[in-house]
Design a binder for these strands. Sequence first.
DNA 1: CTCCTGGTTAGACATACATCAAATCATGTG
DNA 2: CACATGATTTGATGTATGTCTAACCAGGAG
Lengths: 98, 98
Amino acid sequence: MADATDLAVLFKALGDPVRLRLMSMIACHAGGEACVCELTGAFDLSAPTISHHLKVLRESGLVDSQRRGTWVYYRANPDVLARVAAVVDIGDLAAVTA
Amino acid sequence: MADATDLAVLFKALGDPVRLRLMSMIACHAGGEACVCELTGAFDLSAPTISHHLKVLRESGLVDSQRRGTWVYYRANPDVLARVAAVVDIGDLAAVTA
DNA sequence: CTCCTGGTTAGACATACATCAAATCATGTG
DNA sequence: CACATGATTTGATGTATGTCTAACCAGGAG
């Protein structure tokens, strides 16, 4: 049911400490969304690097972005997260196909 | 509660199509364990490559291996899989720390 | 229009990773 | 012991990835 190559993209996107923390900060932020300016300040990394990681999360579908005026806001995509959670349930691991 | 670097190791281990399929084949196999000889034949990859992927899964804790005579058997570690599942629950994403 | 600030893109570079062939280890059999 | 088979380790190689600086794009304020 779920293609291993497609699923691997999701796990790979979460397979980086910075992106995991970004997901955490975005998903748990008040209002369900976080501004890039807040995220960038939380790491000892350059703004382009954070932007790169956000792009990986965005292209995998784990987050969506929206520009409002000068600022860009990111929010988590619950459907895609649920898809990841489902795969890790032992009972559903059989659904991984080539 | 859960260190982002440690968690990322788990997601990275699952972030490869071959390893995802290996996890699926191991977890869903009759008896809860699978012999390497069965796993190797399911891919168009050399035995050393499969062995390498199994090593990644083993070192991450997602599977355990056991030698019985000539053959080596792998079985999934439910606790570690549950840990991964917990993180992806939106409510628990806050538990990811630096 | 000209600046300034927030964010992304482009290019470069070092490291990590997936893969293979060849060599090695482990166990059982003649 | 010698040999065969299952599995892992080693070494090499091409590709992917994380990070940075510099350049660029988008909006708002003078």
